[in-house]
């Protein structure tokens, strides 16, 4: 698990990575820079993932394979692994100028490894 997180945090601009239980929003593993409130972020990411999953399924787009919250000073990137409802979320916190495509690839790779 830590190897999977290593590959994500090695990408330039990534401030941390986590594996989060989609069902209860608890951290399974983490590699975060100081100052990031992992527990709270994990809970909110899981809640957001749940809402998004239900909305996307209702809209006919199927479950999400990758999502990305963009903010003024950074981004939260998530790949849901395994069963969408009770699987593992692979989460990365990144700087605004991060290479999104590269992080996405590492997240997808990590999701394959950990699930």
């Amino acid at each position: 698990m830590s190897k999977a997180l290593d590959l994500i945090t090695r990408v330039r601009g990534v401030r941390g990575a986590m594996l989060v239980s989609a069902e209860d929003g608890l951290i399974v593993a983490e590699q975060l820079m100081e100052g990031i409130k992992g527990g709270a972020v994990a809970a909110l990411a899981a809640s957001l993932a749940g809402r998004l999953r239900r909305a996307m399924e209702a809209a006919g787009t199927g479950t999400s394979v990758f999502w990305h919250l963009q903010a003024e000073q950074g981004a939260l990137l998530v790949v849901p692994g395994g069963d969408a409802a009770d699987g593992i979320l692979v989460v990365a916190v990144a700087e605004p100028d991060v290479n999104i495509g590269l992080v996405r690839l590492e997240l997808l790779r990590a999701a394959e490894t950990v699930v």
Binding site: L44, G60, T63
Partner: peptide, 25 residues
């Protein structure tokens, strides 16, 4: 929820959320 998450991470205001689905984006 998106606003709370971005604030907790110290990322400022959220601008958008993109998601890739199995059959649509």
């Amino acid at each position: 929820e998106a606003a709370r998450t971005a604030k907790l991470l110290g990322l400022g205001a959220w601008n958008g959320l993109s998601a890739e689905g199995q059959h649509g984006n």
